[in-house]
Computed example of a mutant assay.
Amino acid sequence: MNDKVSFGYEDVSPEEKTERVGAVFSNVARKYDVMNDAMSGGMHRLWKDRFVRRVKPQEGEAILDMAGGTGDIAFRMADAGAEVTVSDINQDMLDVGIERALDRGTDGLVWSRQNAETLTFPDRMFDAYTIAFGIRNVTRIDLALAEAYRVLRFGGRFFCLEFSTTEWPGFREVYDAYSHRLVPRIGKVIAGDEESYRYLVESIRRFPPMPEFAGMIRDAGFSQVRVEPIMGGLVAIHSGWKA
């Protein structure tokens, strides 16, 4: 078994990746949402709205929002009446989300520090599992998918929103140039952290292409796996069901 995993363009030990990813998100937590607006021109809000519409959160159902950090997805699902548990491996990100929930008067969310690869929740606890822009930062994606399957009830649904590789002719080259050259500079100006945003851009490039990631979801046991590309695959919604 290869004992190396990717940290951006580097190959490191699993333990080092977990530690370094934690440092990245601790560094950017306070400016995370501002940077999302700056990097995407605000489009991440539209992608997240579309994602939650696909999830179709229902009143009273239990949903685990993994890598939920600052609460963007959880707030949208809670507004629909779902009982949402927000989990993240990084306490700094959770702290920002808790502050945001207090500011907007959102009650009823459960905040739980969790490692996506080793969840402490019992089997078949949730009706849906969501993860938005978080799966590529997990050290062992296959273990995280297996845990997602385990904690879902039969008939439960898995939804993942993640960057991928756009297939639009010409746009891929423009986006590559923008992300590699400008995003780290924007991170330096807004968040005072160029290197963390260099890693985040590189992590997108190392993430499996849409067909490969869909195969990983199937390998975890999910059925009816679907991929919905956005902007030609710049972003994609992956989904599956626990039969």
Rank of each mutant, 00 (worst) to 15 (best):
M93K: 01
M93D: 01
L94V: 06
D95P: 05
V96S: 03
V96F: 03
I98K: 12
I98P: 09
I98R: 12
E99H: 13
E99N: 11
R100C: 05
A101D: 00
A101G: 00
L102W: 14
D103A: 15
D103R: 15
R104G: 02
G105V: 02
G105C: 05
T106G: 03
D107V: 14
D107H: 14
D107Q: 13
G108N: 10
L109C: 07
L109K: 05
L109R: 07
V110F: 14
V110S: 15
V110R: 14
V110H: 15
S112E: 14
S112G: 12
R113P: 11
Q114A: 06
Q114E: 11
Q114N: 06
Q114Y: 06
N115Q: 10
N115E: 13
N115K: 10
A116Q: 03
A116T: 05
A116L: 04
A116H: 02
E117F: 07
E117P: 07
E117K: 06
T118Y: 13
T118P: 09
T118V: 13
T118N: 14
L119S: 03
L119D: 02
F121C: 04
F121S: 03
F121W: 05
P122W: 06
D123L: 10
D123S: 13
D123G: 10
D123M: 12
R124L: 12
M125Q: 14
M125V: 15
M125C: 14
M125L: 15
D127E: 08
D127L: 02
D127G: 07
D127C: 06
A128D: 04
A128T: 06
Y129V: 08
I131T: 03
I131K: 00
I131F: 04
A132S: 11
A132E: 06
A132I: 04
A132F: 02
F133K: 00
F133E: 01
F133L: 06
I135K: 03
I135T: 08
I135Y: 07
R136Q: 03
R136A: 00
R136I: 01
N137L: 02
V138P: 00
T139F: 03
T139G: 04
R140T: 14
R140E: 14
I141S: 08
I141Q: 10
I141L: 10
I141R: 07
I141M: 11
D142S: 14
L143P: 06
L143K: 09
L143C: 11
L143I: 08
A144M: 11
A144I: 08
A144T: 09
A144V: 09
A144Y: 08
L145A: 08
L145K: 04
A146D: 11
